[in-house]
Design a protein around this nucleic acid. Structure first.
Length: 583
RNA sequence: GCAUCCGUAGCGUAGUGGAUAACGCAGUGGCUUCCGAAGCCAAAGAUCGGGGGUUCGAAUCCCUUCGGGUGCACCA
């Protein structure tokens, strides 16, 4: 849309700075479609009455064929309406262009996005939901906008949990070759445990270690041995990794979430010694209360920022060390322009320290972006962090199963469908319910997770969106049956109000994507896709598309429908959902 | 204690300087001989936590106060 451009030119022609030429969607749709309030803002600087400015600018715009209305109103608003011909022309342009008229960024960036953070040997739980779906959506949005994006799961695989598992395994099966110190041969390819066993072993060992200090000590020792390269332990660790990763992939697949990289904390370990050495050598790191730290305070701080700890007082590494080393690794392997962390917002201060430390010690280039994208807590209906009925942490699988079941029941209540197909559909609809429920909120805010509300097929929900898409698909399929393949006829200027309203939502696509991209804001897509669905359903209700007798009008509508369906599909794709053919 | 985020209708949420604060749920009333009623329409519901200030104009910016969440170096 080049409304902005035209208005800018008009302001410039009146001798005013272009920053006053802001155009926004009208909040008085009864009066106009778009509005510019720049005359009000410019009045003071140019010592003119706002109304005078508005009238002069409006007069210039009124001459353009793209506007059917350009008028100055009361205190100094400029009200604009697009001509139906211009709108139709723009819609036709959208159909022909690859990305519905959206222009990819002219300065594509290379981005690493870190959005998984699961730990091996531990099942995914609800806490892993938000980073996965928010990160996935942001990855897709940025790719759509033209950036080169590498999604990294950043697996936690290097701490005490590994030692605990090894210790417990040794206790249960001391005869395994992994525990024979003098064993020189090859280790078996098959892991000596299944994922189910692994998931039982870890919580057990963790609980046991809290009661038995000597057991904990043994686990620490095992961790140490593993990290210093004990062959048998390394082989076991590889098994743990393989079994876990296979299971994690399966779970993420169910969420329609995929990672380009399955890097892990252990991969960053080799970079630690040099990094620490350099920090000492360059004088950034010093000993404070026994620990090696780097100061990251800045004069402009309004709060106390503690130094960033690099090594604990016993000389051991900690999470900070690994995170910093991971930055080193990423710079070395990919030299990205930006690294985005999709992490719980409670870690904001921590990441502030990490980022400052990385900049100060030169781990990244001056212009490398380090972005913290903190998300809020997922709360239950009571407003407190989401728990199971018994108060525990719910597994992600259980949550998904619960949603799919609820959706399945609803499908069976209202539609006649084979069970197998209904299950398949319920999976897609359930995922949309889950994701829309989450992504429609601003990521940074806490939100209330309510299965009943999310899986409702009414109102502002994922299922409603899918329903709309399915409806469009169904109409188009019927049309094809009757008249054969639609040949992409031109969209004609709108002749009814609901058709015009639908067009007006459609043309906002580019602008909306740009905002979602710039602000890392999937909820803007949610909002748009809902508005578009509403506009379509209203249009549908007021026009009998297949019953339309005027050939040209009908084929124009079919094109409009196709475009609406394509855009809806594109948008839900960016949100990480997909629509079934029927539901 | 210091810092930080949040407070919008009974409930869940949009809206970050512009006109009459938007949407959904719940509740009320209406619309199916016809393309999917999982839809559409209408009415009702808000002192935008309170107070002060900046501005021609404030839910939005500043100050203050109340209520809530979160974070403050050897956990990740």
């Amino acid at each position: 849309m080049c409304i902005q451009k035209e208005v800018k030119e008009a302001f410039l022609a009146e001798g005013m700075e272009e920053r006053f030429a802001m155009v926004s969607l009208s909040n008085r749709p009864d009066l106009c479609q778009y509005q510019s309030n720049g005359a009000l803002a410019a009045a003071k600087q140019y010592k003119k009455a706002p109304m005078m400015i508005a009238e002069a600018v409006a007069a210039r715009l009124a001459g353009k064929s793209m506007f059917s209305l350009a008028e100055a109103v009361k205190p100094g608003f400029i009200n604009l309406k697009l001509s139906n011909e211009y709108l139709a022309g723009y819609l036709n342009g959208m159909m022909e262009s690859g990305a519905f008229g959206f222009e990819k960024t002219k300065t594509p960036k290379k981005i690493v996005i870190d959005y998984g953070g699961p730990n091996v040997a531990k099942p995914l739980h609800v806490g892993h939901l938000r980073p996965a779906i928010i990160g996935e959506s942001i990855k897709r949005i940025r790719r759509f906008a033209g950036d080169e994006v590498i999604g990294d799961v950043h697996l936690g695989d290097w701490g005490l949990p590994m030692g605990l598992i090894i210790t417990e395994l040794k206790k249960r099966q001391p005869e395994l070759v992994y525990f024979q110190e003098d064993y020189q041969g090859e280790y078996p390819e098959e892991a000596p445990f299944t994922i189910a066993e692994l998931e039982e072993i870890y919580p057990f060992a963790s609980a046991y270690s809290k009661e038995h200090p000597e057991y904990l000590e043994e686990a620490h020792q095992a961790t140490y041995l593993l990290q210093s390269g004990n062959r048998g332990y390394l082989a076991l660790w590889n098994h743990i990794l393989d079994v876990s990763v296979a299971d994690l992939k399966r779970n993420y697949d169910n969420l329609n979430v995929t990672f380009d990289l399955w890097k892990k904390e252990s991969d960053a370990q080799p970079y630690i010694p040099d990094m620490v050495e350099a920090m000492k050598r360059d004088g950034y790191a010093y000993i404070s209360e026994g620990a090696l730290v780097v100061d990251v305070k800045e004069e402009t701080d309004t709060k106390e920022i503690p130094p960033c700890m690099i090594l604990k007082s016993d000389g051991a590494t900690l999470y900070n060390t690994t995170d910093l080393a991971t930055i080193v690794e990423r710079m070395k392997l990919f030299s990205p322009d930006e690294i985005i962390y999709v992490v719980d917002k409670r870690q904001e201060l921590y990441f502030e320290q990490i980022f400052r430390c990385a900049r100060k010690t030169g781990l990244v280039k001056k212009d490398t972006g380090l972005t913290f994208l903190g998300f809020g807590t997922m709360n239950g209906k009571d407003g407190k962090p989401f728990k199971t009925r018994s108060g525990g942490v719910m597994r992600l699988e259980s949550l998904i199963a619960e949603i799919n079941e609820a959706v399945y029941q609803k499908i069976m209540e209202n539609r006649s469908m084979e069970e197998e197909q209904a299950r398949e559909v319920a999976k897609k609809v359930g995922l949309a319910a889950l994701k829309y429920g989450d992504l429609s909120n601003q990521a940074s805010k806490d939100y209330i997770f309510d299965v009943d509300r999310f899986t409702s097929f009414e109102g502002e929900t994922g299922p409603y969106l899918l329903y709309t898409i399915v409806r469009i698909k169904s109409i188009l399929a019927k049309y094809r049956e009757q008249k054969g393949e639609a040949k992409g006829q031109k969209i004609l200027p709108a002749c009814g109000q609901s058709e015009l309203d639908l067009s007006l939502v459609l043309v906002r696509f580019s602008e909306m994507i740009l905002a979602a991209y710039r602000e890392n804001a999937p909820h803007k897509i949610c909002q748009y896709v809902y508005e578009l669905s509403n506009a379509f359903n209203k249009f549908y209700h007021e026009n009998k598309i297949l019953g339309e007798e005027e050939e040209k009008k009908q084929s124009s509508w079919i094109s409009l429908l196709t475009l609406t369906g394509d855009i809806l599909n594109c948008c839900i794709g960016l949100l990480g959902m997909e629509a079934p053919d029927k539901m």
